[in-house]
């Protein structure tokens, strides 16, 4: 753990964990563009997608800088993607686009919650709400990181996430405390997404290593803040907190649900089919 090479890899993986959550959730939400229930909400939800995408860009830029500073052996051992292995073998430096568009599913470290399909408005709201409550407290803490770049990204992102948590909380309340039908469907969506929330606050190897370095956030501390916020909104929405359940996990280790593959197929198609194209 005290190996400094090891620490630079752990910091890179930590940065990618945060970046991948932002990119994949941003992509999922962007699928609503042009399909929102009313114009104002279509605009609102795609605005949040844009925030996530912008945060992902800052994080991938930083991750690329970290990656390029590694030695050749370390670089080779990091990703399974053959497209990236080929660039690494040629000695090329990577940029934000390479990390977003050329990694394979196994290389992504996002949590399972963010890759779950939109289904309907209630499921979309539930996913955003459960994630926003985490993200808000996570970025609040990350502002104190000893790593100046991560702290700066956190300070900036927190302002945007403050709008997100408000938006998704309002919708949980509106639907939960709405009609009989909306109440039923909001409750069902929260119940079905619940099994993916344990992973949000489960410490990965990178989380533990970065916490020890004063770079990362203590997710155990976030867990109670998350629970408190989620419970207060769910109560106001006249909904019920789901019963304890077996928590599904694996994203931080690169294991994913089948859904991530379909997301990447759409997200990465252009760069894979027409390398280096710009538009």
């Amino acid at each position: 753990m005290t190996n400094s090479k090891n620490m630079s890899i752990q910091k890179l993986l930590y940065t990618l964990q945060i970046a991948d959550n932002a990119l994949i959730l941003g992509h999922r939400i962007s699928e609503w563009c042009g399909h929102g229930p009313v114009l104002e909400q279509d605009i609102a939800i795609t605005n949040t997608a844009l925030d996530h995408l912008g945060q992902a860009r800052s994080l991938y830029q930083y991750a690329a800088t970290q990656f390029n500073a590694l030695n050749q052996e370390e670089k080779k051992g990091l990703f399974v993607s053959s497209a990236l292995q080929s660039l690494i073998a040629q000695g090329k430096l990577l940029d934000e686009d390479d990390l977003a568009y050329l990694r394979d599913g196994w290389d992504f470290r996002n949590v399972w919650l963010v890759e779950q399909p939109n289904k309907d408005w209630a499921y979309t709201v539930a996913r955003s709400f459960l994630y926003d409550c985490f993200n808000y407290f996570f970025y609040t803490e990350l502002r104190n990181s000893k790593d100046e770049t991560l702290a700066a990204i956190a300070e900036k992102s927190l302002k945007e996430v403050t709008y997100h948590i408000r938006w998704s909380s309002e919708w949980v309340i509106r639907l939960g405390d709405g009609t009989e039908e909306s109440h039923k469907r909001m409750q069902q969506a929260i119940n079905d997404r619940w099994a993916y929330t344990g992973e949000l606050v489960k410490m990965s190897e990178a989380d533990t290593a970065m916490l020890a370095e004063g770079v990362g956030v203590d997710l155990n501390a976030i867990a109670s803040q998350w629970q408190e916020r989620v419970a207060s909104v769910i109560e106001e929405a006249t909904l019920t907190i789901p019963q304890d359940t077996w928590m599904q996990e694996g994203g931080k280790e690169g294991r994913h649900t089948e859904h991530l593959g379909y997301i990447l197929a759409e997200l990465q198609f252009m760069q894979r089919a027409y390398p280096n194209m710009e538009w």
Partner: peptide, 12 residues
């Protein structure tokens, strides 16, 4: 009407 407008910086 909405915290989100035609650009990130504006509300409706």
């Amino acid at each position: 009407v909405s915290q989100f407008g035609p650009t990130s910086c504006k509300a409706l």
